[in-house]
Amino acid sequence: EDPKKEILLAMLMVDKEKKGYVMASDLRSKLTSLGEKLTHKEVDDLFREADIEPNGKVKYDEFIHKITL
């Protein structure tokens, strides 16, 4: 499956209130437990690539855009 789609799906599952962003810690939890599970190192690399703080907010569109360039 398309990794971009899988990450967006994980974000939507976490963002039940439809705020347009999720906490990095919640996204990490989903990405390491769903679908093609990522390792913590892979998530760290994704966050670093997208300039996301480990305890920060992750906005869908910015995150998807940064990791798919």
Rank of each mutant, 00 (worst) to 15 (best):
G56C: 05
E49V: 09
K19L: 06
S29Y: 08
I7P: 12
L34R: 08
E49H: 03
E53I: 06
K66T: 05
E49Y: 06
E49T: 03
P54R: 04
G56M: 09
L12I: 03
E49L: 12
M11L: 10
D61V: 06
R48L: 08
Y21R: 08
E17R: 05
F63S: 03
K66P: 07
P54V: 06
E42R: 01
Y21N: 05
L8P: 09
L9I: 06
T32R: 08
A50R: 05
E42K: 06
L31S: 05
D45W: 02
D61Q: 08
M11W: 02
K37Y: 14
D51P: 02
V43W: 04
E6N: 12
D15S: 06
M23Y: 11
K5Y: 12
F63I: 05
T39S: 12
T68S: 15
V43E: 02
S29F: 03
K57Q: 09
L34P: 07
L12T: 14
A10V: 00
I67K: 12
H40F: 05
K19M: 05
L46A: 08
E53G: 10
E53M: 09
T32A: 09
L8Y: 06
A24K: 03
M13C: 10
V58S: 02
M23Q: 13
T32M: 12
L9W: 05
K57W: 14
I67V: 12
F47C: 01
M13Q: 15
L38D: 01
S29A: 15
K66H: 12
I67R: 08
I67M: 14
Y21G: 04
D51W: 00
E53Q: 11
K59C: 01
D51S: 07
K4Q: 09
N55Y: 06
L38Q: 03
A50E: 12
E49A: 09
K59H: 05
P3K: 15
G35E: 08
T32H: 02
K16M: 08
K66N: 10
K41Y: 11
Y21L: 10
D44W: 00
E17A: 05
F47Y: 09
D44Q: 03
Y21A: 08
I67L: 15
P54E: 13
T68A: 14
D61M: 07
N55D: 14
P54L: 05
Y60K: 02
D44I: 00
P54H: 10
V58R: 00
F63W: 07
P3R: 15
L27K: 01
G20N: 10
E17K: 09
